[in-house]
Each structure stands twice: as C-alpha cells, then as structure tokens.
Amino acid sequence: MAKTRELRRRIRSIEKTRQITKTMEMVATSRLKRAQDRVVAARPYAQALADVLGDLYEPSLGERFPLLRAVPGPPRRVAVLGITSNRGLCGAFNANLIREIQSRALALEAGGCHVELHLVGRKGIGFFRFLGREITGQRQDIGDRPTLAHATELVTPLMTRFAAGELDAVEVVFAKFVSPLSTPPTVLPVLPIRRPADRTGRERNAAANAIIRPSVDELLATILPQYVRNQMFRALVETAAAEQGARRTAMKNATDSAGEMIDTLRRTFNRARQAQITQEIAEIVGGSEALRG
C-alpha cells in the first residue's frame, strides 16, 4: 500500500514538472520566432555596409584610419567581449559560450598577451566572478531585445581605446545563429576591421567609378564606426535568438523525458496495484477455504 502511494505522489510531481517545461517550451518557441525575424531583418543593413566598405577599401587606408590598423606581430593587449544570457534553463548554451570565452582568453594569454574580459549576461559574469577573474566591463541589463543603442554603448569605449592604441585587438565571443538547432559559439574579430568579402566584379567596377561626396576619407570616417557598431549589434541579436532556440530544445527534451518517466512510473504503479489486488484475493480465498475446513 505504501509503495503505491509513493508512486502516485511521484507521478503527480513529474506531471507538474512536465506542465512547466511544456509551457516554457511554448514560450521559447514564440520568442524564438520573433528573435529569428529580427536576425533576418537585420541582414540587409549588414550586407549594405559590407558592400560599401568592400568598394571603398584599399590596403593603404590602414595608415590613415586607426580602426583599420593591424598591429604587426602578436597582439599585446586584447579585449575579449563575451556574450552570454541572463537566464538559465537553456541546456548547454551558456556553458558552451563560457568555455569558448575561456579558451579564447587562455589561448591569447599563452601568447604572452594581456586579456581584459568584458562580459554581457548574468551567466557569464557569475561564472568568471566565481573563478575570481578580473572582469573589466560587465552588463546584465541587455535582455531579449538588444538594440543598436546597447551595441553602441558596449563597443564605443573599446573603439576609442583601440584608436588610441591602448588595445591591439577587440574580439567578440557570441553564439552564431545558424539555425534554432545549431548555435555554435563563435569568435568574431571586430577590431582591427577586416576587409569584408568582395562582391562580384561588375558591380564593383560600377561602384568604383561612382561620384563620391564629400570624399572617401570622410565617408570612411562615418562608415567604419558604423560597421563596428553593427557587428556588435548583430552579435547581440544572434545570441538572443540562439538563446531562445537553445531553450526551446532544452525544454522539449525535458518535456519528453518527463513523459517517459511518467510512462515507466505508471507501469510500475499499475503492476504494484495489480499485485496488491491479487494478493488480497488470494488472502480472501485462503481465508474462506480455511473456514470451510
């Protein structure tokens, strides 16, 4: 009797857990949809910036624009900006990002470079604080809907310090949103700016002969920081979408395993109940047999 009661209690508890994970799965699914739309909608802007930068780019520009200047030899001071999420219950999402941030920092430090850590998201901050690592910059107020203003606040001080020569490189570690099921942690070198991939020859020729106002230098002075801010923005948007994708997968798995557990427990419970009934009948039969003598 005690055993069936215990089983019934566990089944009820797991059913409640399943209800919660199922709800969270549905919430993540709807948030994912919206976040995914934002990732797709942000593409034309990034493409346009990359196109124009590719058109205007010349190797000699590095001498005039500090944002393009690559330091010869291994970098000495690098800022690694790691993006994680504020909330958990999304499987190995944050663990993967943290591992990538750490391995990137260690790889740079192994090369004799000073790494300063900038972190976005409660999960990453918590982990590195626990490790006792010095965290140079941290933000945990960027939620599901990152804006260009967030990106600007994050990356502008780094840009200024890079231009002043205080930093040799700035890298962002984020979750690339390939698909809701594939969100690999990725290292994106933001500064110095690398040349975006070229577009096709004919378009490039047309663009190269364009009338340019006021001048290539003044345009680049605007477009280069704009490009950096947008790369930061994209990293935030993709990570936000990836987090929802990871959470949906994690919650779906949790719901599925809760269902399996309930099935198993219910089978055990039914068997126990049947055993008890059989035993009671056997006792009654045994008792009446005894009475008949």
Binding site: I211, I212, R213, L219
Partner: peptide
C-alpha cells in the same frame, strides 16, 4: 538612371 553615386 542616375550615375553611380555615394554620399554621406
């Protein structure tokens, strides 16, 4: 049919 053009 504007000529190729780029401006701030």
């Amino acid at each position: 049919r504007h000529a190729p053009f780029l401006t701030l």
